[in-house]
């Protein structure tokens, strides 16, 4: 029972992590909270769903939806953040403009897909299950976990060992110093938005597949959790976000199993509150992104 719940927590945590990484990357580079991140998460799931509906193979539909999410993130930066950045608008004004962008995206999604919950066509999804002792695991869950871990692995490699990752970390660390070294700040920010939004979109698609449900409300459900995760992990820290996401995933599934599903969020947020009382700056500070 415990092992089963921890396995479920792992599947949930992996998807939370993808979502939270995008949040924390943008915070690390720009010091702003992008509250439109959850709207991109939701739109990517809808786009993947529609592409599957048009007859695209699932893998291709997911890949195209990820690119869509990334480009949407770049567009979001151009419209909602870049003009404010040029005017040195601080961090509070972009927060408001990201809420505005989220409302617009939510409205577009409602107009295109309607208010109802959608499901992926069942023929494309595997329902196979594997059994290992008392542990039972769905093939789909395993694929989702593998995809999430692979994306995190790629991100970790990019951030640590490529010119792009180094330039993102340099801009996060000191934008002026980076500019003096010849780094194109605006281009680096655009690429950060692409990566962050594609990861957020991946989380939306994977959660849509995991629960076989895509709806307008799915963004709102994960938004506060994502925020709590990155605060728990330490704002701007990618590793912290991953750790925080797995803690939240595990606490949620365990509280459903051992207490009651109605207390799930109360217990999850209670545990996070306790951790933050002990470590007010989060598990890992902002430096962690910069050191990757």
């Amino acid at each position: 029972m415990l092992v089963q719940q921890l396995a479920n927590g792992l599947f949930l945590g992996a998807v939370y992590a993808l979502f939270a990484i995008g949040y924390t990357l943008i915070f690390g580079v720009l010091d702003i909270l992008n509250l439109a991140h959850a709207a991109i998460f939701m739109l990517a799931a809808f786009v993947a769903l529609s592409l599957v509906g048009f007859g695209f193979p699932l893998v291709l539909a997911v890949a195209l939806a990820l690119v869509f999410a990334g480009l949407l993130g770049v567009l979001l930066d151009r419209i909602a953040f870049a003009p404010l950045r040029r005017r040195n608008a601080g961090t509070l004004v972009p927060l408001i403009s990201s809420i505005g962008a989220a409302i617009v995206m939510q409205g577009i999604a409602r107009g295109v897909w309607g208010p109802d919950e959608h499901r992926f066509p069942s023929n494309g999804l595997s329902t196979a299950e594997f059994h290992l002792g008392s542990l039972s695991v769905g093939a789909l869950d395993l694929i989702i976990l593998a995809v999430a871990l692979a994306l995190m692995g790629i991100l970790s490699y990019v951030m640590r060992s490529t010119a792009l990752g180094r330039s993102i970390r340099a801009v996060a660390e000191d934008r002026v110093a980076a500019a003096l070294l010849g780094i194109d700040i605006e281009r680096t920010i655009a690429l950060t938005f692409f990566i962050a939004s594609a990861l957020g979109g991946a989380a939306g698609i994977l959660i849509g597949l995991q629960y076989n449900s895509v709806s307008l409300e799915m963004g709102a459900r994960i938004e506060l959790k994502g925020l709590a995760i990155i605060i728990l992990g330490g704002m701007g820290s990618v590793t912290g976000a991953v750790i925080g996401a797995f803690i939240l995933g595990a606490v949620e599934t365990l509280s459903v199993a051992y207490v009651s599903s109605s207390y799930r969020d109360a217990i999850a947020f209670g545990v996070m509150f306790l951790i933050l009382v002990l470590r007010p700056a989060g598990l890992l500070g902002k430096r962690a992104l910069r050191a990757a």
């Binding site: 970390r169 340099a170 000191d174 110093a177 980076a178 003096l180 430096r287 910069r290």
Partner: peptide, 8 residues
Amino acid sequence: GRRMLAGM
């Protein structure tokens, strides 16, 4: 002030 990328 040299402006190191201190964490890198």
